[in-house]
Write a protein that binds this DNA or RNA. Structure first.
Lengths: 216, 216, 216, 216
DNA sequence: AATGAATGAGAGTTCATTCAT
DNA sequence: AATGAATGAACTCTCATTCAT
C-alpha cells in the first residue's frame, strides 16, 4: 500500500516454512549467480535452482536486485563474522605485529576463497545499489576499527594517524586478496609467498619510524 | 563461414573512412557505457551515439562484447602509454624512491580519474572475456617490468625478489587508486593525503631492510 | 463435482457467520474495485480489504468474476429498491407529469452519485458476464413497468405505445445520469440545470400530442 | 532520451513500409480487441494478428495502452468524419426538424454498428487515459456545434438556450444509439421503430414551445 | 557500404487459483 | 472453516541481431 523501499525484502518470513523458502531462494541465487553471472541469473533460473516457483520468489523479494542485495548482505555478514572472530582471538594474546597481520590476511583470503565467483558477481559485476554499498562501507569501517584497536596495543607501531593507517590497511588487504583470488594470481605467486609478501608490506608500513607524514 | 574468433573486430579497417567509423563507434560506446552502464549500453544506443546505423556497427563488430573488448583495449593502451611516459621520464633523472612512487601513484590516479565511470564499467561491471583479461595481465606485466627497472637503479632499495615486489607494487597501486576513485574515497581522505599515505606504504615496503623473506 | 454454474456463489450462506464473511468480501471488493479499477482489484487485495484470507474468499466465490457479479447484483438491487421507493411514493399522490419525472431523474442521479467509481467499474469497465447483463435488463424492465404504471394515471399523457415510451424514458434517464456523473458533466451544466433540462426532454416527449408515430 | 508522453506513438512512420506496419498493427489491434476484449488483447496476439513481430509493435507504440489510444482516436476521427458529412449535407437543403434529427440518429447508429465490439471495448471496457477522454469531449463539442448551427436555421425551433440543447441532443443520441447497439436492444424494438422513437423524443424537445426553462 | 525496419527469444513480473496445514 | 504460502501460465516489454532495400 505504501511506497516501499524497492530493494528490501517483501515480507519478514515468520513461519518456519517461509524461512526455509527464503533460505532456499538465497541458496539458489548464490548458485546461479556464481555459475552464470549477474545477467545469467534470471529469476526463473534462481527459482528453479531453489526448488521453488517464481511466484514464491516474488512473494519474498520485490525484484531481482533485492535478491542480490540480500545475498550481498549475507556475504558481508559472514565475512564480518569470520574476520572479526580471528581478530578478536588475536586481541587477547600478546601478538607481534606481523603475526597479527598474517592472521588478518589469511582470514580475508579464506573469506574470498569460499565462493569466489559469487563474490565477484555480487561485488563487482552486478549493479551496486546504494543500500549494498552502505553495507560494504560499514564492514570496512568495522574492520578498520578493530584493526586500529589492535594496533594500539602493538608496541612497535608508532603512527601519527592510526585511524587513517587502519583504513589503508583494510583497503589494501581487501583489494589484494580479492585480486589474488579473482583476477590474476599476481605473478603466479603461490599462496604462502603471497601472504608473506603482503604481510611484509603491511609490517613495513606500520612499523615505519617516519611518523611525520601529514594526513589531512 | 569458418568459425572466427568471435571477439576480434570483423575487418581490418584499412580504408580511412572505415577507421573513422570504428572510432566513432568506440567513442559512442565509451559515452553510452560510461553514462548508462553495461546493461544500459544497448547496441542501438551505441550506434545512435556514434551517429551510425546499427547495421554499420555490426559491419565492424561481430557482437556487443567485441565492442567492449575493443574499448577495453583502447583504454588499456592509453593507460599504458600515459603511465609509461611518466615512468620513462623518471628513469633518466636520478630520483629518490619516494618521488618515483609518487609519480607512479599520481599517474595512475590521473588515469583513473579521466573517465571513471567508463573505467568502472569496463573493468568491473561488464563480463570479462578472457581476451580482455589477457590484455589487463599484459599491462600489469609491462608496468611491473618498468617499475622493476626503476627499482634496480634505486640505491636505497634492497630486495630479495625484486620481480615479485614490482608486481605487488603495481597491484597495490592499481587497486588502491581504483578504489579511491570509484568506491569509497577511503576514510574521506583528501587526494593529497591519500597519495602521501600510499607513497609511504610503498616506500616503507621497498626500503625495508628485511630482505630475508622468501618468495617462492 | 458436477459442472456448476461458474458464477453463482458457491454455497448458500445459511449460517450467520458465513453471511458476515460474504458481506465482508463484497465490502472489500466494493472498496478495492472502486479505488483501483477492475484490473487493480486482485483477489488478494480484495481478501485483505475484507479482512479475510484468499482461501476463505474462494470458499464463498468460485472465481473473481463471481465476486463482480454478486457485487453488481447488490448494486442493482439497491438501485431498484431506492428508485422504486421514490416512484411508489409518487404513485399514490396525484402528481403532475414533470414532477414525476423530476423525482425519477433525481433518484437516478442520487443512485449514481452514491459510489460513482464502483458503479463505473462494475457497469462499464469490467467484463459483462451474461448473468449480470440479465440482471441489468431485469432492473430496466422493472423500472419501465413502474414508469408505465405511473404514466397510465397521468391525464396529460397520450401515447400510442405506452410500453415503448416507458422503456425509452428509462434508457434515457439511465444513460444521461450515468454520463452526467461519470464522463462529462455535459457542457458543465450545474446539477439543477441538468435535471431541468432532462425533465423538459421527457415532459415534451410524453406530453407530445402526436400519437401517430408507429412503433412496430 | 527526453521523458516522452507515455501514450503517444513512438515514432512517426515516415517510410512507406513503416506506415504499412503501423496500419497493420492498428488493424490487428482492432480485430483482437473486438474479439477478445481489452484484457484478451495481448500485445503478442495483436502483433500476430497484424502479421508483425512484437518487436515491431513496440517500435511504434511505447506500450499497450498507446495502441488503444491510437485506435480510439482513429475511431473518433472516423465517426467525426462520417457524421459530419451527413450533417453538412443536411445543412444546405432546407429540411424539416425531424428529418434532420432522423439523419443524425441514423448516422450515429451506423457508426456504432460498424464495429460494435471494438467500439464497446475502446469506449467502455478499457481504461480511459485522459488523452483519449479529451478526444471524446472534442468530438462531442464538434457535433454539438454542428447541431446547433442546424437548429439555428430551423424555423420551428424556439429555445432559450440553444447551446445547452444541442449538447443534450448529442449526448442523448450518442447514449441511446450506443445502448441500442451494445446492450439491450431496448425492449426488442426493431431498428426503424427505435429511430422513430428517438426522433420523436428529440423533435418534441426541440419544438417545445416552453422556452422558459432556466439553464443556470 | 550503409541503412534502419523487422525479428523473436527470453527477460522480469503478476495474479487467479490451489492445497497443505 | 480458515489460513496464507505456494504455484505457474501468461503477461508486457527489451534488445542483440539480421536482412531487404
Amino acid at each position: 500500500m505504501s511506497p516501499r523501499d524497492p530493494l528490501s525484502p517483501r515480507k519478514r518470513p515468520t513461519q518456519r516454512r517461509a524461512r526455509e523458502t527464503v533460505d532456499a531462494i538465497l541458496g539458489g541465487a548464490a548458485r546461479v549467480f556464481g555459475e552464470r553471472g549477474y545477467a545469467g541469473g534470471t529469476t526463473n533460473r534462481i527459482a528453479e535452482a531453489a526448488g521453488v516457483s517464481v511466484g514464491s520468489l516474488y512473494e519474498y523479494f520485490p525484484n531481482k536486485d533485492a535478491i542480490l542485495v540480500a545475498l550481498g548482505k549475507r556475504q558481508l555478514d559472514e565475512m564480518s563474522r569470520d574476520v572479526a572472530a580471528v581478530l578478536e582471538a588475536a586481541r587477547d594474546s600478546q601478538l607481534a605485529l606481523d603475526t597479527l597481520m598474517r592472521r588478518f590476511v589469511e582470514a580475508m583470503l579464506e573469506v574470498h576463497e569460499r565462493r569466489p565467483d559469487l563474490h565477484r558477481v555480487i561485488f563487482s559485476e552486478a549493479p551496486h545499489p546504494p543500500e549494498l554499498h552502505a553495507c560494504v562501507l560499514q564492514l570496512e569501517e568495522t574492520l578498520a576499527h578493530t584493526v586500529e584497536a589492535l594496533l594500539e596495543r602493538c608496541p612497535d607501531v608508532a603512527l601519527a594517524d592510526r585511524d587513517t593507517a587502519a583504513h589503508l590497511v583494510v583497503q589494501t588487504v581487501e583489494a589484494l586478496t580479492h585480486r589474488y583470488v579473482h583476477h590474476h594470481r599476481i605473478h603466479d605467486l603461490p599462496r604462502e609467498a603471497f601472504v608473506n609478501e603482503v604481510v611484509e608490506l603491511l609490517r613495513a608500513y606500520l612499523a615505519s619510524a617516519d611518523s611525520m607524514r601529514s594526513s589531512s
